[in-house]
Amino acid sequence: MSDNKHRVSRRQFLNYTLTGVGGFMAAGMLMPMVRFALDPVLKGEAGGEMVAVAQVKDITTEPKRFDFKVKVKDAWYESEEPRSAWVYKDDKGEIVALSPVCKHLGCTVNWNGDKEHPNQFFCPCHYGRYEKDGTNVPGTPPIHPLDRYELKVKDGTLYLGKAKPRGEA
């Protein structure tokens, strides 16, 4: 008797499982819709404004490191993340802002970090090197030049945007 009570009949079983599957399907259908609805908003935000990083008068022909923060939106979580840039004026007097993120595996590179190779950027992780203009030195681990930040100058202040692979910036 009591055995019977607890037994799930075939019909009940099918009912349970089908509701389950149906539930899943509904969720599956809902998710993409939600994503579509949110997408344009996210894109608008991620477009990213430029951030004030330095005063132009502080920029010399010697690369200097400037630290700043950017707002990062990662799905549901918004945070401020630190960034750095190596900034200098090139021979033509134009400002160059390089991303310090090594193109090998992402360590932070330093200007003049290796005494044996002066006037280069040096990556302490696996000894990657780059020329002053960001070109990777062949024979060291990185195989691409350092990214360059999009930049603009307004009222004596340098603003940086996204770091982009060279050729795109």
Binding site: P82, V101, H104, L105, G106, C107, C123, P124, C125, H126
Partner: peptide
């Protein structure tokens, strides 16, 4: 976290 940012690749 900052240390990781500096030495991410290693």
């Amino acid at each position: 976290n900052e240390l990781e940012r500096q030495f991410k690749g290693r």
